[in-house]
Simulated assay, not measured.
Amino acid sequence: MKKLLAMALLSVVVLTQAYSENKQSSKEKEMKLTEEHYTFELSDKVTREKVTFKNRYGITLTGDLYLPKNRAEEPLPALAISGPYGAVKEQASGLYANQFAQRGFAVVAFDPSFTGESGGEPRNVASPDINTEDFSAAIDFLGIQSFVDREKVGIMGICGFGGMGLNAAAVDKRVKAIAVASMYDMSRVTARGYFDSMTTEQRSQMLEQLGIQRWKDAEKEEPAYGVAGLPEPDQLTGNEPEFVQGYVNYYKTERGFHPRSINSNGSWTATNALSFMNMPLLTYISEISPRPVLIIAGENAHSRYFSEDAYKAANEPKELMIIPGAVHTDLYDKTDIIPFDKLESFFKENLK
Rank of each mutant, 00 (worst) to 15 (best):
V107T: 09
G104C: 11
D111N: 08
Q91F: 10
V107G: 05
V88L: 13
Q91D: 01
N124D: 12
K89V: 02
G86K: 04
Q91P: 10
S113E: 11
S118C: 03
G116K: 01
E117Q: 13
V108I: 15
E90K: 12
L95W: 02
S118G: 08
G94M: 10
Q99H: 13
L95P: 03
Q91G: 06
E90G: 12
Y96N: 01
E117P: 09
V88Q: 01
E121P: 02
S113R: 03
Q99Y: 06
A101Y: 04
Q91I: 12
F100A: 14
E117A: 11
Q102P: 05
E117C: 04
K89Q: 05
V88Y: 01
G120D: 01
S113P: 08
R103V: 07
V107I: 15
V88R: 02
S118I: 05
E117R: 15
G86T: 00
S113L: 02
F110S: 11
V108N: 00
Q102E: 15
R103M: 14
F100H: 03
G104T: 00
G120I: 03
P84A: 15
G104L: 13
Y85E: 04
G116H: 00
R103G: 11
A109I: 07
S118H: 09
Y96R: 05
P122F: 09
F100T: 11
G116D: 13
V125M: 05
T115S: 15
R103P: 08
F110I: 03
Y85F: 15
Q102A: 09
